[in-house]
Amino acid sequence: DETGKELVLVLYDYQEKSPREVTIKKGDILTLLNSTNKDWWKIEVNDRQGFVPAAYLKKLD
């Protein structure tokens, strides 16, 4: 059920640097789980959840 889920576009590649982070690729469109922290957003990638720098993402309307 995708209702109410926010999507984000990945602006730059990011390689995870800790187990709490996930790797993302430029151009991916992913589900945003939590954006309350202005610097690190929690997203879902391939059934994995983790954090990436918010500056690497853009919210889609």
Score class of each variant (00 low, 15 high):
K5T: 11
K42Q: 14
G50A: 07
R48W: 08
D28K: 06
R20T: 11
E44K: 11
K38H: 11
Y14T: 01
D61P: 13
K25V: 10
L11K: 05
I29M: 05
K26C: 08
D1W: 10
E2F: 13
L33E: 02
K38T: 10
A55N: 13
L9D: 01
K38R: 11
G50S: 03
E21V: 03
Y12S: 10
L33G: 01
K58A: 10
K59N: 05
D47C: 11
D28W: 15
S18N: 11
E16L: 08
D1Y: 12
D13G: 06
R20Q: 12
P53Y: 02
Q15I: 13
Q15N: 12
K58F: 07
W41P: 00
A55P: 08
R48L: 07
L57I: 06
R20I: 12
L57P: 02
D61H: 13
V8S: 01
K17I: 08
I29H: 04
Q15A: 13
T36Y: 09
L30W: 15
E21Y: 04
N34V: 08
V22F: 06
K58Y: 08
K58T: 10
G27F: 04
D28M: 15
G27P: 01
V8M: 03
V8T: 03
K25P: 01
D39L: 12
I24K: 00
E21K: 03
D39Y: 15
Y14N: 00
E44M: 11
Q15F: 15
D47I: 07
D39W: 15
A55L: 11
I43G: 00
F51K: 02
K38G: 09
V8A: 07
E21Q: 11
I29A: 02
L33K: 05
L30F: 08
L11V: 06
L60T: 06
E16N: 06
K26P: 03
Y14L: 02
P19G: 09
N46V: 12
N37C: 09
Q49M: 09
A54Y: 02
K59Q: 07
G27T: 02
G27A: 03
K59G: 04
D61L: 09
D13Y: 04
W41V: 02
E44D: 07
L9C: 08
L32F: 02
S18M: 08
L60H: 05
V45P: 00
W40M: 05
L32M: 04
D39F: 15
L33C: 07
Y56D: 04
A54R: 10
N34Q: 10
V22N: 02
T23I: 03
Q49Y: 06
V52T: 02
D13V: 02
I29W: 04
N37R: 08
S18P: 04
A55K: 14
L7R: 13
I24P: 00
P53F: 03
P19Y: 08
L7Y: 15
E44L: 10
D1P: 12
V10D: 00
L30Y: 10
P53T: 01
V10K: 00
T36A: 13
Y14M: 01
F51N: 03
D61S: 13
T3A: 14
D61V: 11
F51M: 07
L30C: 14
G50T: 05
E44S: 09
K25C: 10
K59M: 09
D47H: 12
Y56W: 06
L7E: 08
N34K: 07
G50R: 04
K42E: 15
L11S: 02
F51E: 04
D28V: 05
R48N: 06
V45H: 13
N34D: 15
I43L: 07
E16I: 09
S35T: 09
S18L: 08
E16R: 10
N37F: 08
G4H: 15
V8I: 05
V8L: 04
L33A: 03
D1T: 14
T3E: 13
K25M: 09
N37G: 09
L33S: 03
T36K: 12
K17W: 04
S18V: 04
T36V: 10
Q49A: 10
G4T: 14
Q15R: 09
K26R: 10
D1V: 14
T3M: 13
G27W: 05
K25D: 03
V10P: 00
I43C: 05
S18K: 08
L11H: 02
V10Q: 00
T31G: 08
L57E: 01
D61I: 11
D28P: 01
G50F: 10
T31S: 09
K38S: 11
E6Q: 15
D13A: 06
T23E: 03
T31E: 10
K42C: 12
V10C: 10
T36D: 15
L57K: 00
S18A: 11
T31D: 06
L9G: 02
S18G: 11
V10L: 01
D39K: 13
L30G: 15
T36E: 15
E2C: 14
G50N: 02
T23L: 02
P19E: 12
E2D: 14
K5F: 13
K5G: 08
K59I: 14
T3F: 11
E21T: 06
K58R: 11
P19L: 08
F51P: 00
N34H: 06
A54I: 04
P53C: 04
E6D: 12
L30E: 05
D61T: 14
G50E: 04
I29G: 00
Y12K: 15
E21F: 04
D61M: 10
E2N: 15
V8P: 00
R48A: 06
T23P: 03
K42G: 05
Q49R: 11
L9V: 10
G27C: 08
D13F: 03
D61W: 08
D1S: 14
I43R: 00
D13I: 01
T23D: 03
N34T: 07
K26M: 08
N37L: 08
P19N: 09
G4R: 15
D1R: 08
K58E: 13
T36C: 12
D28H: 11
K58N: 05
D13W: 03
V52G: 02
I24R: 00
V52L: 01
E21D: 04
Q15V: 14
E2G: 13
L7S: 08
I43A: 02
V10E: 00
V52I: 04
W41S: 02
L32R: 01
P53Q: 01
N34L: 08
E6C: 14
S35K: 07
D47G: 15
W40F: 06
A55S: 13
K5D: 08
T31A: 12
P53D: 02
P53R: 03
T23C: 04
I43Y: 00
K58M: 12
P19H: 10
E16P: 10
V10F: 01
W40S: 03
Q49H: 09
W40H: 03
K25Y: 12
S35N: 07
L60A: 04
L60Q: 05
Q49E: 11
N34I: 07
K5P: 13
Y12I: 08
D39Q: 12
R48Y: 05
L60R: 03
L7W: 15
D13L: 02
Y56V: 14
K17E: 07
Q49P: 05
K38M: 10
T36I: 08
Y12V: 09
L9E: 09
T31R: 14
E44R: 09
L57R: 00
D39C: 12
T36H: 12
D47M: 11
Q15H: 15
Q15Y: 15
I29Q: 04
R48P: 00
L57C: 07
L30H: 15
T36P: 04
T23K: 04
D61R: 09
V8K: 00
G4Q: 14
T23G: 04
E16G: 12
I29T: 06
K58G: 06
D13T: 05
K42T: 06
L32Y: 01
P19R: 09
L11R: 05
I24A: 05
F51T: 03
E16Y: 05
Y14D: 01
P53I: 02
L7P: 04
E44Y: 06
I43W: 00
L32G: 01
K26Y: 05
D28F: 07
P53S: 02
T31C: 10
K26L: 04
S35A: 11
L30V: 15
T3I: 13
K25S: 10
Q49L: 06
V22R: 03
V22L: 09
A55R: 14
Y56G: 07
Y14C: 02
K25Q: 09
N37A: 08
A55V: 11
D47N: 13
L11A: 03
G27N: 06
P53N: 02
V52M: 01
R20M: 12
L7A: 06
E44C: 11
K17C: 11
K5M: 10
K58I: 11
L9N: 02
G4S: 14
E2K: 14
V10T: 05
Y56F: 11
R48G: 04
V45F: 14
D13K: 03
D47F: 10
D28S: 11
